[in-house]
Design a protein around this nucleic acid. Sequence first.
DNA 1: TCTTTCAACTGGTATAGACATCTAAATCCA
DNA 2: TGGATTTAGATGTCTATACCAGTTGAAAGA
Lengths: 243, 243
Amino acid sequence: MIDKQSPIPIYHQLEEYIKQLIESGILKPDEAIPSEREYSEQYQISRMTVRQALNNLVNDGYLYRQKGRGTFVNKQKVEQKLQGLTSFTEDMKERGLVPSSRLISFEIIPAEPQLARKLDIKENTPVYEIKRVRMADNLPMALETTCLPANLVKGLTEEIINKSLYQHIEEKLSLTISEATQQIEASIAKETEVNHLQVESGSPVLLIVRTSFLEDGTPFELVKSAYRADRYKFVHTMQRATK
Amino acid sequence: MIDKQSPIPIYHQLEEYIKQLIESGILKPDEAIPSEREYSEQYQISRMTVRQALNNLVNDGYLYRQKGRGTFVNKQKVEQKLQGLTSFTEDMKERGLVPSSRLISFEIIPAEPQLARKLDIKENTPVYEIKRVRMADNLPMALETTCLPANLVKGLTEEIINKSLYQHIEEKLSLTISEATQQIEASIAKETEVNHLQVESGSPVLLIVRTSFLEDGTPFELVKSAYRADRYKFVHTMQRATK
DNA sequence: TCTTTCAACTGGTATAGACATCTAAATCCA
DNA sequence: TGGATTTAGATGTCTATACCAGTTGAAAGA
């Protein structure tokens, strides 16, 4: 279990070991794990080394401590992933649905003033505009419009879009999206949305507008989505700033 | 600077001291701070104690380390606020609006099965239920229902609610909310919402259901809000998981 | 039977020292 | 001059030990 000769630090080995027990469900939420002194004696390692492992797991949210009582397993954070940036595809997979898309239009257009401002480019700079109906288990889920500055992602084709736009961006262009802002509001489906989403007129939709940024802060894309309110719920976890 | 006789842990004193230097701008981003051994000798404390202080500051994002080179000051985080948990009051203030409330009802009720499950308590356990119309600049903004297990916040009064529920929770009861999950969806205003929010029937509303948790993972409150879609937009910043 | 006391746990704080590994500057040598 | 080597100093890992402070349950006492 613990190999003192390994070049991998002992605390890290213990960390991975405990993490595995939690993720596999052998250690259940609110269950106490062995005390620091027990680990120390069992593996013949210093208590401080055990503490280093446990501290990391506490910081990562796997465990919590109670002075005088012990160290306990935290409830699994399902949302850990959701905290990150999720594409429609990843989002649907996580919900256990099969994602698919139908391309509606794909063209290069000059950026309108509002779009130009949000992408921090000059007016009329060419941008790719991709309109798609996003589906889950073959049912329309959202109408999505993606806008990307053409100079950042040259040579985009329908084929690439249909395969995986994000994979292409990350692997082929080696660009990394590090941050995003989302604005979420409720509305009533407009006519195009009624048509493409196959809802009755007057139906509520959840509008999500996402602006993504690269590591250096350059705006990279603007994605506007209108989700069918009867099928989609946006879930989101926040952690308080530790002040 | 460092008082060894103080009941406040030494590592915590050092932590606050360095944090202050960073926040006041005396230590600038990417600047190296004194080495661990320097702190150790200067204040006659163990290097491990210094490391505990620095580790905490690294975890909180104030510092970063480079093996063999030193420890450096991180860039200030802008998004800290949005990432944190915001009450309606804080939210509105940040938007430059004046928040107020009108209490609709305040009672102790037995928890229904669904509520009990979400708050992880037994059915029919007494909970406080607070219904309020939340207003911004004296215009109805949202209809909000807050449910709290009565055993966690004994002796709640109308007066406390009208003053500041969160302040009471943090300062008087010394409970800390460390995490929250939110579910956001779009809907059409129901009758009570139409009445209290003064919207036309058929108007869209943004529904936000928030569950807050204490540091040990205990569910603490469930807040259901229906926002007027024409007045409210939910904004939210995400950072990609650093893997 | 009920209450109090206390011992045996728990994690929290702190020390002093050892060796490893990495970095960058100084030094040496061809 | 230019490249290799040494070296000083930085963080990283780990040990062994000590005492503090909160929790709990069993033993002792009323």
